[in-house]
Amino acid sequence: MSNTHHFDVVGSFLRPANLKNAKAELEAGKITELQYKAIKQNAIRELVEKQKKAGLHYITDGEYNRKFWHLDFFWGFDGIAHQKDGGGVQFAGEVADLEATYLVGKIRVRPHPFVEDFKFVKSLESDGHEAKQTIPAPAQLFQQLIVPQNIETTRKFYATNDELIEDIAYAYRGVIRQLYDAGCRTIQFDDCTWGAIVGDAAAQRYKSLGLSLDVVKNQLLHVNNLAIEGKPADLQINTHICRGNYHSTYFTSGPYDSVADYVFARENVNTLYLEYDDERSGGFEPLSKVSADKVVVLGLITSKSPKLEDKVTVIARIKEATKYIPLERLKLSPQCGFASCDVGNKLTEEEQWAKIALIKEIADEVWG
């Protein structure tokens, strides 16, 4: 994120009603894939115009091209299958309706469907606006494949986590190269693994797999850095760290203290987008571990609720963060996207844009 732009969004936007309706019609067989694509591309054009009007530097497709922020990307690799099995992941007070995603072979890269989607957004770039691509972090795929319900299947193809990490990193390098060749110069990893491992349940979850948390943290760091290794010098890779965002609920709570020595200090990314919208995130002290070459985007505005934050309070919190990171290396954003999955968070499109307007207003006041 260039230093002249001090505010951003994480990437996903609420799906407009006409797009949701079109998707339902497609699933019911009332319209063709081609008709749906035309409606979707039109919705993305309109969204990009709104992003430009809101003063955002980065433009995205709002993740309109996928159902889930992470799973659809994984399905673009060979060796990965999925099915709707009625299961899901327990969030605070709600079960996230996700699709089972698992291995059916070795992970291999092929022409990734996200690349064509990116080319469309790239074609909508104009002066002062750059298309960025959001994808789940390599660590997210690694975690997906070693969770208790998947580990048995994963072991049929990978005897060790080290072999799995090698193939994930290699496949990601392939997609990173495809995106780069399509003109992409900013990629954002979305990563819930660090947010999940700070939670109370993480020790139990990994203990059942015979792994200590320190071993897992090293593996998460290793798979992300291995995927980034050898990237083109002019390609920015940023990361967004999250504790879960589904229909305005969260997955886990806990401060960054226990992961700061790994991801803040040693992950080879340019920018950290950090969730800091409520007390679940802890204090700013772990920011002292952020390496001097990184920019930090403070997610002080929540995307989970329509209530507008108090400007004075947000500005005071930015000032507090400057004890650890100089102001010129800080930026402002929501803590997460507005619709990590199709279902979206519990606010209206108008309320979503009001949040973004507030972020810009604060950024203008703080950074000028």
Rank of each mutant, 00 (worst) to 15 (best):
314 V>P: 04
267 E>W: 06
279 E>S: 11
295 V>Q: 13
289 K>E: 12
288 S>E: 14
308 L>C: 08
283 G>R: 03
309 E>D: 15
306 P>S: 13
325 I>N: 04
313 T>Q: 15
294 K>F: 05
317 R>G: 06
283 G>W: 02
269 V>D: 04
290 V>P: 09
324 Y>H: 12
308 L>G: 09
267 E>A: 06
304 K>S: 08
275 E>C: 04
285 E>K: 14
323 K>W: 00
270 N>T: 14
324 Y>N: 01
322 T>R: 07
308 L>M: 12
321 A>N: 07
316 A>G: 12
281 S>I: 01
276 Y>P: 00
314 V>H: 09
283 G>N: 13
289 K>N: 12
302 T>I: 06
325 I>S: 02
324 Y>M: 01
267 E>N: 12
322 T>F: 05
322 T>K: 02
296 V>T: 06
269 V>N: 01
274 L>A: 11
308 L>S: 08
320 E>C: 07
276 Y>N: 08
281 S>E: 06
293 D>S: 13
319 K>F: 04
275 E>Y: 07
313 T>W: 14
292 A>I: 05
312 V>Q: 15
320 E>T: 13
282 G>F: 09
315 I>S: 14
268 N>Q: 10
301 I>K: 13
323 K>H: 11
309 E>G: 11
301 I>W: 14
310 D>T: 12
310 D>W: 02
295 V>H: 10
271 T>F: 00
289 K>Q: 14
288 S>H: 11
284 F>Q: 12
325 I>A: 02
281 S>P: 02
274 L>C: 10
281 S>M: 07
277 D>Q: 08
273 Y>L: 14
317 R>C: 05
276 Y>S: 01
294 K>H: 05
271 T>W: 00
